[in-house]
Design a protein around this nucleic acid. Sequence first.
DNA 1: TTCTTTTTTGAAACCGGTTTCAATCATGGT
DNA 2: ACCATGATTGAAACCGGTTTCAAAAAAGAA
Lengths: 347, 347
Amino acid sequence: MKRLTISSIAELAGVSKATVSRVLNGYPHISPEVREQVEAVIKETGYQPNQVARSLASDRSNIIGLVIPKGTEAVFLDPYFPALTNGITQVSNNNGLTLALFIFHSEQEGQDTIKSIVNTGLLDGLILTTDRVTFDRTTDPFIPQLVERNIPFVLIGRPDNPSDDIPYIDTNNVLGGYIATRHLIDLGYERIATVTSRYNPAGDDRFAGYTQALEECGREVDMNLVAYGDYTLESGYREMKTLIPHKPDAVFVASDTMALGALRAINEANLVVPDDIAVVGHDDLPPAVQATPQLTTVRQSVEKLGGQAVEMLLEIINSKEDIKRQVLLPSKLVIRASCGAKRKKAT
Amino acid sequence: MKRLTISSIAELAGVSKATVSRVLNGYPHISPEVREQVEAVIKETGYQPNQVARSLASDRSNIIGLVIPKGTEAVFLDPYFPALTNGITQVSNNNGLTLALFIFHSEQEGQDTIKSIVNTGLLDGLILTTDRVTFDRTTDPFIPQLVERNIPFVLIGRPDNPSDDIPYIDTNNVLGGYIATRHLIDLGYERIATVTSRYNPAGDDRFAGYTQALEECGREVDMNLVAYGDYTLESGYREMKTLIPHKPDAVFVASDTMALGALRAINEANLVVPDDIAVVGHDDLPPAVQATPQLTTVRQSVEKLGGQAVEMLLEIINSKEDIKRQVLLPSKLVIRASCGAKRKKAT
DNA sequence: TTCTTTTTTGAAACCGGTTTCAATCATGGT
DNA sequence: ACCATGATTGAAACCGGTTTCAAAAAAGAA
């Protein structure tokens, strides 16, 4: 049984290829009888048009690429990327898009692959995730290339050097740091520390929110109470240990995974959460609930982030003009046990 | 600046399209001068052939699909899928393949998408991951369809009803259960329990290995010491709790994630690992090292599993005859603190 | 009724490659 | 010097769709 082509369908239906194509694409000016006839044949034979041929002719592949740099560790020590991917596939599927996944295991591999991706015209557009740990735009050659070649793309995560011509979507990390810290202030904590992350937009912004909350309340940032991790559990553990001697009574940790490490450090120092030190995390990914005590944390809907990125990308692909939007998604505080809010209320 | 095509290159090099195509594809009988000339033009212009056109003409897209069912939770509560994906992308990249990711969020979505994937001829082949929790081949319509339509595919994870015409690759789970249990026996434990998982090949096999080890040593399986979870941390916690009253002195937990739950249950019962109850896990994914005490566990290289799946698939795609191989990868025990081996040795 | 105007349809060009076929050219054998 | 053989190349067909263009048919206007 040879493969069905548009020609076979045309023959079976007694019309031309062109007409079948028109029916397939919902072209308006087709007589009802012909349309019915063609549709009947299609249904009967189970014909589905060849995507590749379609792409070639229409210059649209309906494939978008998801680029994840630094695949080795980061991708699965942190549930962030899986959650993101999940959101992206969901919306992609709904829009009839196929998602091509690019995880790079070395800088060089990334360069080469990206270059060919961009040139071979296989993809309609790209979603770029920024590295959570370090993202130095000056060393990142993709983006200028994409802009120059006019390839539709969307960044997930604010670039460290935002500008109008690069579209991105991110969680409002300043807000996140702010509401977390503000919550701790409102609960009456005095020495509020933070474990954040430096040299990357998310960490910087969360720290900015922390600073803002403190200053708004007339406090100063005590650099003894500020430590920098790299989003790993280990770094959370390590940095919390350096913080403890300075006697914080609360800490805002810029990721749940690091917060898990912090919890361990606090435990090992024979201190109790939240009685001795209150903890607020950021992300609200599954580990937040698995922790003991359960983490009060800032919820960012990572899946929604991914989904909206796809929608943005689609808009860019479909629009003739340059729409390059910058979007920040709000986050909100989820109160659980680790911040002591419930205990305080009880008192 | 209009896009470069093979015709422009041909013109610039003063040869025909056919010749350029031959140079591009490393066809042998080309005179050195012509080859050089064409290559020079290609390098100079930075020309890269259009993938889509290539696919259409050669009936090879160099795109393979990775299908992950049940995207919702499982995908990122367990580092298994991310690790697998990582291994798959690595080998794909090395072979110039693009990976298309399909995560299904509902049964229906899966049906529809698969159907069109298969029919539209976009993909050269498929890698199917089996659901870790339940995988009922009788309700799974993909595989028979794929076999019938002669689409190259490889299963990751033994199907629950293996047969010669379906190629798969899996960890040797029987072996894993065996060496874990055997290790506990050799350390002198008497009442060795297990938390495994039922109604799925991996769980069943690991349990079979457990059984085999015990029986080989003239012991019987005590069903009071057998519990069934679903690979979540919560289920490990819950099932371990039901096991503790039966006074096990050791337990083989069929996944690290469940083992983490088990550790928590043991802790809460004021028992100490490994002094009161020794624990051996399975998988050796990152959480095994993050646990306290660190988990003795069976190492299966999930990344290698993914990588080899790609290689198998490539072989199938490239070979004319039907090679449908079934591969089991060996696993080995990684001894850390939770089994008490070191303590025992010290004694 | 006749002359636009709009629908409806098919033929053919096109998207950018690969591959078949045949022609030309160089080489080796006798 | 002559013929068989193999190397090298280009023209043209082809992959399976979409889209342009023009013609035929139907509808509306005068």
